[in-house]
Amino acid sequence: MNQRLKAQQLLVISLLAGMLLIYPVLSIVNTPRLVGGIPALYAYVFCVWVVLIALTAWLMERYYRKASGNENE
């Protein structure tokens, strides 16, 4: 896969997750309610976090299988 494209994809993942984890989005779930027995905010932050890791892993591992040569940009 194109290295430049991949760098951009990673950057987007990071920025998107960043936006989801700060004000104002965070204020939506900023309530003492429990979701499935867990505080909503806590559950939300961990969910975004898991998705962030999963996306990164998926992207990197897919790349790893596809190409293993050219590592320069």
């Binding site: 965070l26 309530t31 429990l34 909503a40």
Partner: peptide, 28 residues
């Protein structure tokens, strides 16, 4: 008795329930 137990017990203590959210003075 697991996560649910702790959190539901904590939710009954006002001092602890406050910690479920982001509040001033800590704040966003």
């Amino acid at each position: 008795n697991g996560f649910g137990d702790i959190f539901s017990q904590a939710a009954r203590v006002p001092r602890l329930e406050q910690l479920f959210v982001v509040r001033e003075p800590f704040g966003f």
